[in-house]
Simulated assay, not measured.
Amino acid sequence: MNYRHAFHAGNFADVMKHALLARILVHLRGKETPFRVVDTHAGIGRYDLAGPQAERTLEWRAGIGRMEEPFGPEVEPLLAPYREVIGATRARYGETVYPGSPAIVRELLRPADRAVFVEKHPEDGAVLAERFNAVHNIKVMLMDGWIALRGLIPPKERRGLVLIDPPFEEPGELARAASRLRDAMRRWPTGIFAVWYPIKDMAEIESFVAAASGAQARDLLRLELLVDRPDGLRLAGSGLLVANPPWTLAGEAGLLLPALAERLARRDYGAFRCERLEREPPRETRGPHVPGGS
């Protein structure tokens, strides 16, 4: 109940997560039939990077703050939906405002699509409801995201995405995420599920991925971005474990992640992982040295 994403908004993990979220939503928009999005730990939806929380940590400077310069011709088109959402958010709410996952979903929903945003924190949930409940195809629920997940799937739509992005404040949260993902895949076998996770200790992450995979390993895509060498203490990277991934996502992530690893690297180190079944070490890419990176 203490986690507030406003302190971390726009950091390297947000850039990775939101760029890939936009790619998944673009894929869902590729068919005419409506889809459903469930965001189980939604936060407040958008964040002021000039606000007191973001200004206290300045994490965004080593994340979205490094994204202004365009990438090459293979990567930049893949970032276009993400950049367009950022532009629309800034045009509507101010040049220092960064969109969280609910704002990205809202911008990429079509009129016939539906979304449910869930938030447990009472203050954040109230802000989220004020910002999104008036949107005709979005519903905000103020409750525990893990409890909501079981009640919200399967939806009436056969297609859709569940974004699971818990704060990982409590012991055993990774194990719980693995268990809930396996259960969710059984309950909605045609849905796409994306679980975000922080990377500090790689051994812990390997255990999480193994537990989440089970008999469903062939339907999982493991995507990771490392901006520092994991030492078991500090946040060195983040991952997105995607069940039933769009067929285009592996190829797109294979272009996006190395570019982000190079751009967002700390202390001359960046690495990425994009894999389905095989377990291989992340490939290292050398990025620019960033003195005192956040």
Rank of each mutant, 00 (worst) to 15 (best):
D14E: 11
L21H: 02
L20H: 01
R46G: 12
L28E: 10
A22L: 00
A19C: 15
H27T: 10
A9K: 03
G43W: 08
V15C: 13
A13F: 03
G30L: 12
H18I: 03
P34S: 15
I24P: 00
H18M: 03
P34D: 14
G45P: 08
A19F: 07
F35R: 03
G45W: 02
D14P: 05
D48M: 15
V37W: 14
A22Y: 06
R46C: 08
H27S: 15
G45I: 10
L49D: 03
V26G: 01
G45E: 09
F35T: 08
G30I: 00
L49P: 12
A42T: 11
R23Q: 13
F12A: 15
G30N: 12
H18D: 02
A9D: 05
H8A: 03
T40L: 14
A9H: 01
N11K: 12
H18K: 10
V38N: 02
H27A: 14
K17H: 08
R23E: 10
H27D: 13
G43H: 06
L20R: 04
R36A: 14
R29A: 15
I44E: 14
N11G: 09
I24C: 05
P34I: 04
G10L: 11
I24D: 00
E32N: 14
A13Q: 08
A22Q: 03
M16S: 13
E32C: 07
A13E: 04
T33K: 13
G45V: 02
